[in-house]
């Protein structure tokens, strides 16, 4: 049972990708630090290593830091 959700509605998914970003997928409201809001079907990858040059999004810098480290 999925509390609060009508049948047919899918709960948005958050995946912590191994040694990688956080994937957010599904219908939700997304709000950036500057206050822009979009409410729609999303598939976004949020940087979780703190090193992306395109925050909040992942730009795959984590791969470089793993390889060089």
């Amino acid at each position: 049972m999925e509390n609060g959700h009508k049948s047919g509605e899918k709960i948005p998914e958050v995946r912590i990708l191994k040694d990688g970003p956080i994937m957010l997928k599904g219908f939700f409201r997304f709000r950036t630090s500057s206050g822009e809001e979009t409410q729609k079907e999303h598939e976004i990858y949020i940087c979780s290593c703190g090193k992306s040059g395109n925050k909040p999004y992942c730009d795959e810098t984590h791969k470089k830091s793993v390889m060089s480290g």
């Binding site: 609060g4 948005p12 409201r29 997304f30 950036t32 409410q39």
Partner: peptide
């Protein structure tokens, strides 16, 4: 805000 919609906030 519409509380029925999940929210991800940076």
């Amino acid at each position: 805000a519409d509380k029925t919609v999940s929210e991800a906030r940076i």
